[in-house]
């Protein structure tokens, strides 16, 4: 017999002066292969037409649907209800601006991060695209791709102790991005340039190594290794500076 799931979902509409943050309860019969994407859409269709949440790809690649699932950050679209107990509590991701209910503005935060850390390949010159491309070692290309796989979902920030204390902390996502561009020989920046953007306590020296980011990254990125690596490189850079 199918279980009856009991969802406790955070509801709040910050733009509505009458709205009070609260948990509301919805009951739903579980079906085989049910994901939180399916469950939330059913709740919206049948019980709460104004319930806000964000899904786009519903395949675990776009990073839209991160939320706190029974207290742990994760991608709702690929979470099977079968992996959860009968009572499922869903809260919006902390550390981001709340839009309404389970919807938070990760996009705005990530754009600001990108502007602040200049997360793009800094070119020496524009390429001549009529000519053969510059060669790159096949292993290096794979290493860069490995570092390029972050989907900016925000789970690392939600799981981060430092981010709770420092509102401007760049998080694992930021430090990992620096690792990505630092590994890429097409980017002409040097460690002095990277030190400028994350060489302080809101950057790589703010990390307390609690490892929450590593535990909850849906792409299993080696966040701690990269943070340790960048911290060592930039500590050396800081030492040189003084």
């Amino acid at each position: 017999m199918n279980r009856t799931l009991r969802f406790q979902i955070f509801r709040h509409h910050p733009l509505d002066p009458q709205s009070q943050p609260r948990l509301e309860t919805y009951r739903l019969e579980e079906s085989p292969g049910m994901t939180l994407f399916i469950a939330l859409n059913l709740i919206r269709a049948e019980q709460a037409p104004d319930l806000n949440f964000d899904f786009v790809c519903r395949a675990g690649v776009c990073g839209s649907c991160a939320m706190l699932i029974n207290g742990r950050p994760g991608l709702a679209c690929r979470t099977l209800t079968a992996s959860l107990p009968e009572t499922i509590t869903l809260l919006p991701l902390p550390n981001f601006e709340l839009i309404a209910d389970l919807s938070v503005n990760t996009g705005k935060w990530m754009r600001a991060l990108s502007e602040r850390l200049e997360t793009w390949v800094h070119l020496n010159e524009e390429p001549d695209i009529d000519r053969l491309e510059a060669p790159m070692d096949a292993d290096l290309a794979e290493q860069i791709y490995e570092l390029d796989r972050c989907i900016e979902c925000g789970c690392c920030l939600a799981a981060c102790g430092t981010a709770q204390m420092r509102k401007d902390f760049v998080g694992a996502v930021g430090i990992h991005k620096i690792a990505r561009f630092r590994a890429d020989p097409r980017d002409c920046r040097d460690d002095a340039a990277y030190y400028e953007v994350i060489g302080d306590e809101d950057g790589v020296f703010g990390c307390m190594s609690l490892l929450g980011c590593q535990d909850f990254c849906p792409k299993n990125l080696s966040l701690q290794t990269q943070i340790a690596f960048i911290r060592r490189k930039l500590a050396r850079q800081g030492w040189k500076k003084t």
Partner: peptide
């Protein structure tokens, strides 16, 4: 080729 220069890590 433009994307290769701008940062896409194409398999080689």
């Amino acid at each position: 080729r433009e994307l290769a220069a701008w940062g896409v890590p194409w398999s080689r």
